[in-house]
Computed example of a mutant assay.
Amino acid sequence: MTNDHVIVLPGGGYTRISDNESAPIVAWLESLGMSASYFAYPVNTRHPAVLEAVRGEIRARRDAGADRIALLGFSAGGHAAGHAALAPGASARERVDLVMLCYPVVSMMLPTHQVSRETLLGRDATPEQRVATSLDLLVTPDAPPFFVWHTAEDDAVPVQHSYLLGMALAGAGVRHALHVFARGGHGLNLARDAGGARQWTDLCAAWLREEGWLP
């Protein structure tokens, strides 16, 4: 039997760590019978500090006995999760086996979510820096499976971010699920009172079962 662990990366625009996307998410995962923890990655700091910190947390969980590691990220934490999974240069101990992204920041080329981009890269980020931190431009055929969800009404991190990632995953032949719900704004976390978006936890649990992470 494998020893699996999920690292939760809350959102917060790279300026703070969101409380409602941390402990409540760990509690939900544990209710499914999974081992989980949330990681308070460094904020208000420039790239590559976050990437290096997340990779360090992955190594620590492997040293603690985890055979398989998944990342679950929200908004800017979704960017941090996707970046750790897709950026080149990861060692074997730093590679992740599964990724779940909730209304993620994906592209640093789009004009939207400016606060995440400027906090991570600065206002004078070069085109090369923006390309190197855009998840959709980092997808390769050996990327791990992805589960992604977003809402069409999200005006903080528009749904185009997830569409770009979905297209890149499809183009590279990476196994993935992409769900877009018609209603709901940004920062829904468990989305218990958010109409159709409340389905995301059941859909994610079903996907985890299909991927062999739940019985």
Score class of each variant (00 low, 15 high):
Gly73Ala: 15
Gly13His: 02
Gly73Glu: 13
Arg46Phe: 08
Val50Phe: 05
Val26Trp: 11
Gly13Gln: 03
Gly166His: 10
Ser134Leu: 05
Ala172Asn: 01
Glu57Cys: 04
Arg55Val: 04
Thr119Arg: 12
Ala23Ile: 04
Ser18Glu: 08
Asn189Tyr: 02
Thr119Leu: 02
Arg95His: 13
Ala87Gly: 14
Ala84Val: 04
Gly196His: 02
Ala66Trp: 09
Leu72Asn: 07
Gly73Asp: 14
Gln199Ala: 10
Ala53Tyr: 01
Arg192Tyr: 01
Ile58Cys: 14
Ser162His: 00
Pro141Cys: 07
Val26Glu: 12
Ile58Leu: 12
Pro141Gln: 05
His176Gly: 04
His179Gly: 01
Gly166Asn: 11
Glu52Asn: 09
Asp4Gln: 12
Leu110Thr: 15
Arg68Cys: 01
Pro144Gly: 02
Ala80Val: 15
Gly166Cys: 08
Ser75His: 09
Val6Tyr: 07
Ser116Tyr: 10
Leu188Thr: 01
Pro141Glu: 12
His47Pro: 02
Val148Phe: 03
Leu101Pro: 05
Gly212Leu: 07
Gly65Ser: 10
Ile7Val: 09
Gly166Ser: 14
His186Pro: 03
Thr201Pro: 06
Glu21Leu: 08
Asn189Pro: 00
Ile7Lys: 00
Arg95Phe: 14
Gly122Leu: 13
Pro158Ala: 07
Pro10Thr: 06
Gly185Thr: 05
Asp193Tyr: 04
Ala191Met: 00
Asn20Ala: 12
Arg61Gly: 03
Leu165Asn: 13
Leu137Ala: 10
Thr2Gln: 14
Met34Asn: 01
Ile7Asn: 00
Gln129Leu: 09
Arg130Ala: 12
Arg46Trp: 08
Pro42Gly: 03
Ala168Glu: 07
Arg123Ala: 15
Leu188Gln: 04
Asn44Met: 11
Trp207Cys: 11
Gly187His: 03
Ala80Lys: 14
Gly187Asp: 05
Ala40Pro: 00
Pro158Met: 10
His79Trp: 06
Leu203Lys: 04
Gly196Val: 02
Gly173Glu: 00
Leu178Thr: 07
Glu94Gly: 10
Leu135Ala: 09
Ala36Leu: 08
Leu137Gly: 12
Asp155Arg: 12
Val50Gly: 15
His186Ser: 05
Thr15Phe: 00
Asp154Pro: 10
Pro127Cys: 13
Leu110Tyr: 14
Pro215Phe: 00
Gln114Arg: 12
Asp124Ile: 05
Pro141Gly: 06
Gln160Tyr: 07
Val115Tyr: 11
Glu21Ser: 13
Ala194His: 01
Ile17Leu: 15
Ala170Ser: 13
